[in-house]
């Protein structure tokens, strides 16, 4: 599938959901209001639906065209993930990205329960060591020093209190 088709499709789904909710916004509390609070959301939603639809169509047509042009490459294209785009995204490793996202989500969820210092040590240590196992010594030092410095600067110099966990 062409990337634009998928992107347009996802955008279209979001836009349709948004528009449906927009239609359910109740009228203003004030009788004197000229423009109801649902007007802008509905307009935005409809326009968003249209452009998403156009992008999906464009992506679909481009896909059809390339397929006709180059039947030979067709199979290879369908198996491997799309190699189009500006060169930077295509080298992404889906497994790696998923793991990174999982570690990041865990950090966000543990930020308050474990407190800033502990959760950040775990996050930085976990993520850096996952990505570069060989340099675990450097990564571990980084993981411990970074949160402690930040904690000190925030709590003692700036009086922005970072969450404390069960231990400190």
């Amino acid at each position: 599938m062409h990337k634009d088709f998928l992107g347009g499709l996802l955008s279209l789904i979001a836009a349709v959901i948004y528009t449906i909710i927009a239609f359910q916004i109740p009228d203003s509390n004030f009788a004197t209001d000229v423009i109801q609070p649902n007007v802008f959301p509905i307009l935005i939603g409809i326009a968003w639906v249209i452009v998403s639809f156009l992008l999906a169509i464009k992506g679909f047509l481009l896909y059809q065209m390339t397929r006709k042009e180059n039947v030979a490459e067709h199979k290879a294209r369908n198996q491997a993930p799309s190699t189009e785009g500006t060169g930077e995204n295509e080298k992404q490793d889906p497994v790696k990205v998923t793991v990174i996202l999982a570690i990041f989500l865990a950090y966000l969820l543990l930020f308050f329960p474990l407190g800033y210092v502990l959760s950040t040590i775990l996050f930085i240590a976990g993520l850096t060591i996952y990505l570069e196992r060989r340099k675990w010594k450097r990564n571990l030092i980084y993981a411990i020093v970074f949160p402690l410095i930040i904690y000190f600067v925030f709590n003692d110099l700036l009086s922005v209190y970072l969450p404390t966990g069960p231990f400190f």
């Binding site: 916004i25 009228d27 004030f30």
Partner: peptide, 13 residues
């Protein structure tokens, strides 16, 4: 558009 709409007092999204 997310949030309370101050002019009408209606909550959106």
């Amino acid at each position: 558009t997310v949030g309370i709409d101050p002019q009408s007092g209606i909550n959106r999204f």
